[in-house]
């Protein structure tokens, strides 16, 4: 079994008086794709934000690449090689595609090949044609691709991907799955949150299921697909 690049232990987090996470533990191994599944409001986004330091963890520990990153500011965590793609896309609408990529650019760790816009355009061919265009003029799917490309410009070792397939047309969802698999090929570990079981099954090796801020299932993706009881209880609406 490959060593874990990201380890989350008994994470607690919330907003103001509202507690949302109650001791979430999970891990992500080097180069694997893991899915964090759960219904709307289960706590998926909150988990990813708390890992990234966008929401201060109220308890528990997060280790990344052997370092304790609990409570570090997001930019420090990003610099250690953990990328984050938010659910709401949050591209810089006033900037061109190229400029959006520039914001994400960081030098790679020693000995790794750097992502360049040109290399990214081989993964996201759509973006190539609109590199000089303002991001506000792009479709939702293109914007979603751009957020991922932007994060890859930081040459991360692992990426947190918040509901990549949400709200996308089926064709685009397929492209998205290809992109995730390409990231895996490049040796990037991906932790993605998902509600769409088909999408997760197409890309993920392992799965966690979260409900009301607690992990209710963990195991191989295939095991989740086979476990009707768990799916009924926590995934179908």
């Amino acid at each position: 079994m490959a060593e874990a690049v990201l380890e989350v232990e008994a994470l607690h987090a919330g907003y103001g008086p509202a507690k949302v996470l109650f001791g979430v533990s999970l891990s992500l191994r080097r180069g694997e794709v893991a899915a964090l599944m759960g219904r709307n409001g289960a706590g998926k986004s909150t988990t990813l934000k708390a890992i990234m330091g966008l929401l201060p963890p109220r308890g528990g520990r997060v280790r990344f690449a052997g370092q304790d990153i609990t409570g570090l500011p997001p930019f420090r965590i990003a610099r250690l090689g953990l990328g984050y793609v938010p659910e709401e896309r949050r591209i810089f609408t006033d900037l061109t595609v190229y400029e959006n990529l520039e914001v994400g650019r960081r030098a790679p760790a020693a000995g790794r090949a750097a992502w360049t816009p040109e290399r990214l355009f081989t993964v996201f061919p759509n973006l190539a044609e609109m590199r000089g265009r303002r991001a506000s003029a792009m479709s939702g799917g293109e914007q979603q691709m751009l957020t991922i490309a932007r994060t890859l410009m930081g040459n991360p070792e692992a990426v947190l991907l918040d509901e990549p397939s949400e709200g996308l047309a089926p064709v685009i969802v397929e492209q998205m799955a290809d992109a995730v698999l390409r990231m895996k090929e490049e040796g990037i570990a991906v932790l993605l949150s998902e509600q769409n079981l088909d999408f997760a099954a197409a890309v993920a090796d392992r799965a966690y299921v979260i409900e009301r801020g607690e992990i209710r299932f963990q195991g191989a993706m295939a095991a989740l697909e086979a476990d009707e009881q768990v799916r009924e209880a926590y995934l179908t609406v």
Binding site: F75, A78, P86, R90
Partner: peptide, 9 residues
């Protein structure tokens, strides 16, 4: 905030 999450101090 997003600029920060991309590693900019």
């Amino acid at each position: 905030e997003m600029v920060g999450a991309l590693g900019v101090n």
